[in-house]
Design a protein around this nucleic acid. Structure first.
Lengths: 218, 218
DNA sequence: CCGCTGATCATCCAAATGGTTGATTCAGGC
DNA sequence: GCCTGAATCAACCATTTGGATGATCAGCGG
């Protein structure tokens, strides 16, 4: 059986070098190309496709400096040229925000690993993902499990949405307009958010939500 | 002349592998040890010191998962065992927050590079730092220069301090207590902060300050 | 059909925050 | 010695937020 052909996508040369070195140590895995953002990744995919040298796995970071981010890139890859099935996408990133994970999974990623994972874990993930299976980092899996079993009062979708706007510094009025609801409703949502997060004002809510990775900082 | 002996400190195996691979390509540079956090780094330094195999340069990330962070590690290294001069510390990190940069420089770092820097830049920085010179990433240098020449109304130290507390979700009263000043003073500072950042409420101030890398998100 | 949850809105009141003005002190620079 | 900027505080008032209570409605599962 031939090697798993991998496309690396990361904007940090250092990280690409690390992955390249690491994957070189995994028997049965070959890095066939690299890209520094989503746009370049799509280009590479197309190029390799027309050359008849298909990619078996895309290993991609989520946030990439200037270019197209990982989520949209994943969507586009999955939407991709019909005809051949699109390659599985394994996300390898630094952040394990709830929002990020969900977005990546929804976009069609087959796995979500963290960069601080030990090589062996990464190896397993690469093999699983290339084989069409799902590969989640233990931390990520734990977070998702915890989210299901643990009644750490889950925020509703609307509430998370509110939080995100909140974090941009909008006033209640502004959020109300943006979401086409009344200020009263905004306040109700906020009160619920506060009680679920165990805080009593908006800045603390942002701090906690950021810390708990419900929304993302920066 | 013998090689520059480098100690790598980073909590991400992938990044360590990347740096190892990259430095291996630089003639005149040898990685003699690795550590995954500040504590381990200090241990390594001690060990190598007693072995009579001194380190010429510490290449370190700023934030490292569980262990001691880069700033305190830098301080300890610089305070280090008297007798031999402590090795220069080159910070190589992902974030270029004003606060981070200043903290690192104050702690005694001789350089501050970003992980997305091209290899050549990193090579230059390693050589400069090992030679006892200062090495700043262009982005970082630009930020510092801009901060000097550009009258993008600079926040005073006290104001940044306020902002940091603000971002943790504290109320005016709480901040006043914490800083041993009156609420009136807190409010005055906040008003100044708002006008300098061009916002009109605390959450927006946090959002802008985070965006402009005056304080750090997460 | 009933009960529950999430989303929506309203009203009322108390507390926190924001905006303005003005004043004092202190350290540094010219 | 004078000027400036940072830091400190006060008093006042308008606006925003937060907290409590109650109500309606749609959808989902038993």
């Amino acid at each position: 059986m031939s090697d798993i052909r991998v496309l690396l996508v990361d904007d940090h040369p250092v990280v690409r070098a690390g992955l390249r070195a690491m994957l070189a140590d995994f028997p049965g895995v070959t890095v066939v190309a690299e890209a520094e953002d989503g746009d370049a990744a799509l280009l590479e995919l197309g190029k390799l496709h027309t050359l008849g040298e298909p990619v078996d796995l895309v290993l991609m970071d989520l946030q990439m400096g200037a270019g197209m981010d990982g989520v949209t890139a994943t969507q586009k890859i999955k939407a991709g040229e019909a005809g051949t099935p699109p390659p599985p996408v394994l996300i390898l990133t630094t952040y394990d925000t709830d929002a990020d994970i969900l977005a990546a999974v929804e976009a069609g990623a087959s796995g979500y690993m963290l960069k601080d994972a030990p090589p062996e874990q990464i190896r397993q993930a690469v093999l699983s993902a290339a084989a069409g299976q799902t590969a989640l980092a233990p931390e990520v899996a734990a977070r998702l499990m915890g989210r299901i079993r643990n009644p750490s009062p889950a925020l509703s979708g609307r509430e998370v949405q509110l939080l995100e706007l909140l974090a941009t510094g909008m006033s209640n009025r502004a959020m109300a307009k943006q979401l086409f609801i009344s200020e009263a409703t905004v306040k109700t949502h906020l009160v619920h958010i506060y009680s679920k997060l165990g805080v009593d004002n908006r800045t603390a809510a942002i701090a906690v939500a950021t810390q708990r990775r419900i929304i993302r900082g920066r």
